[in-house]
Design a protein around this nucleic acid. Structure first.
Lengths: 226, 226
DNA sequence: TTCATAGTTCGATGCTAATCGAAGCATTGA
DNA sequence: TCAATGCTTCGATTAGCATCGAACTATGAA
């Protein structure tokens, strides 16, 4: 027989559309209930239950019972890493889900993509940071420059805390509405969190829309065009 | 509906045992023929052909026709990355088969992981440097100690030049054959470069194997056990 | 107790995909 | 030209698994 870690078993667990949808929904780090995950995946609760049982048996996710809810989370940062690498490959080889996107202008303007900013604002952020020499795109992907590290600290982002995670700091993510890159990875996520904290933007409930306040958007524009 | 890269499609391609075996065989960097891959996967040539067609259609591998042979290679370094991450997960969750890591003993001994040294030699390097107090592992990752800086200068590594790059100087990287850490980051890469320069080791063409000369390995052992 | 909500288990169904034998191309060498 | 090798295509079989309706368990609230 063959030797080595059984990657097929793990990959097969990620290789079902319903399960992949659930897992990407969990990438935000938030714990979600079985019902929420079922809706996220577009399947009935029974089907979701079966998938969740498989993912748990495979130690991809863990669950925590609380009252009559069951909260699921990814079992470790390596799962996030795997999902991000797979997203990168899917982008490269052009395996994108093509759906005639909702024409909702707010969604096109600013929305969350897992846990970071996407849409026109996300693309603007990526371009602004690049223009200012704060991030650089090389053969190994995107990375913070020395100036970028300074910028992050000044903006109130604890890079050490992010570094300690296994997840890559910066990563490109193809924007489906703008067809350009926006910034993913733990730094991308931290930036969006900071925008929330500063009160520049809020997430609209039950939607992927990120709504910037007038003042918030002004300050955001200033930040990326400094 | 959903947006974004279609992870499931890519993961499903990696999620079949036969295909996963083929892909891991290709991780060595060598181009292999359809027949070799069939044997590696333990399936008949017909079945292998079908799998290879799928992998090629999914742009996971590429083929090169040469005479009546067809040589297959992975389509990019991101595939290697994905396989390594998946191996890490499989290890963590205990989805193992008999032995870990690459089959080829030379690959297990010393190979490149992107641009730094991995395998038994890589792990030995990491341990040796730690033992001598040249690097230290803290909550924020690995860092050079004062003695380590001295060591680096004495060994002919220009730390200032490395510092100017945006890439972290030291970084831990889990070795998938030895299941222990080896040293990545720009310092890890610089060390390997230095080994090449000193003639201690050479990279084997069309492969990830790093081959140390007898004398080179002796000096390497001395360096890390001083 | 009774009802509502959250989630699971069971069973049936239907689809997909892996597998291999047999036959078919294509290339090379004699 | 013929034979051998390397690989693919075709067809049939099989097995696994995703899916959902229906029924069941568990928790909480009235």
């Amino acid at each position: 027989m063959k030797e080595g870690p059984d990657i097929a078993r793990v990959a097969a667990l990620l290789g079902d559309p319903a399960r992949a949808n659930m897992l990407t929904a969990l990438m935000s780090g938030r714990a979600l209930t079985a019902a929420e995950l079922a809706q996220e995946a577009g399947v009935t609760p029974q089907t979701a239950s079966s998938h969740l049982a498989k993912l748990e048996a495979g130690l991809i996710i863990t669950q925590r019972k609380q009252g009559r809810h069951r909260y699921f989370t990814l079992s470790g940062p390596d799962i996030v890493e795997a999902l991000e690498v797979l997203m990168g490959i899917a982008n490269r080889v052009g395996h994108n889900r093509v759906r005639t996107g909702p024409k909702d202008p707010e969604l096109r303007h600013a929305r969350v993509c897992y846990d970071h900013l996407a849409g026109d604002m996300g693309v603007a952020l990526f371009e602004g940071l690049t223009q200012q020499g704060l991030i650089e795109t090389g053969i190994n992907g995107v990375a913070l420059t020395v100036n970028g590290i300074e910028f992050a600290n000044a903006f109130g982002i604890d890079l050490d805390a992010l570094h300690s995670k296994r997840r890559p700091l910066c990563r490109e993510c193809l924007d489906w509405s703008a067809r350009q890159s926006h910034l993913a990875g733990s730094f991308g996520a931290a930036l969006l969190d900071r925008f929330y904290d500063l009160g520049w933007a809020k997430r609209v409930a039950d939607s992927r829309i990120v709504r910037f306040s007038t003042e918030g958007e002004r300050q955001f524009r200033e930040l990326i065009s400094r």
